[in-house]
Simulated assay, not measured.
Amino acid sequence: MPDSRTLSIAGWVASIITIACALVLSLDGNPPMRWMFVAWTISNVLWVWYGAGIKSGQVLASQAVFVLIDVIGLVHYWLY
């Protein structure tokens, strides 16, 4: 199990990536979606790790669903 400092860093990095992706999406009419899904996947994986570390089933479950959605987006934008 990761220590609390490592989990805190993961939470902050995940937050920053999530906010940055949301800002790009809201400000750019044609965002680079394939790279956005890469960034969101990294962010959501960090959130899963964070949720597991703080033993929050709600965070873990919701972010696990988002990771699955990210995989769909990655397949769509990178393979089709």
Rank of each mutant, 00 (worst) to 15 (best):
S4R: 13
Q58V: 13
V67P: 07
K55P: 02
S43C: 04
G11E: 06
F66W: 14
I17P: 00
S4K: 13
P32C: 01
A14N: 08
V38I: 15
L68S: 14
C21I: 04
F37E: 03
Y50L: 08
F66T: 09
I16H: 01
W78S: 06
I17A: 02
S8A: 15
G51Y: 01
A39D: 03
V59Q: 12
A10F: 15
D3F: 04
P31C: 01
T41F: 11
L7V: 08
A10C: 14
G51F: 00
V45D: 11
G57S: 12
S62W: 14
G57A: 11
T6A: 15
I54S: 09
I69S: 04
D70A: 05
G73I: 05
A22V: 05
L60P: 04
S26F: 07
P2K: 06
G73S: 06
W12H: 06
L25Y: 06
F66Y: 15
S62E: 13
G57Y: 10
A61N: 13
Q63N: 15
V48H: 01
W49D: 09
P32W: 00
L27P: 00
W78Q: 09
V71R: 03
A61V: 14
I17G: 00
I42T: 13
P31E: 07
P31M: 02
D3V: 07
V71G: 10
L7G: 10
R34E: 10
N44L: 05
W49V: 12
A64S: 15
L79R: 11
V24S: 00
S62N: 13
D28T: 03
P2V: 09
S62Q: 14
W40D: 04
H76I: 06
A61K: 07
W47F: 12
A10W: 08
D70K: 00
G51V: 01
Y77M: 07
S62I: 14
W40H: 03
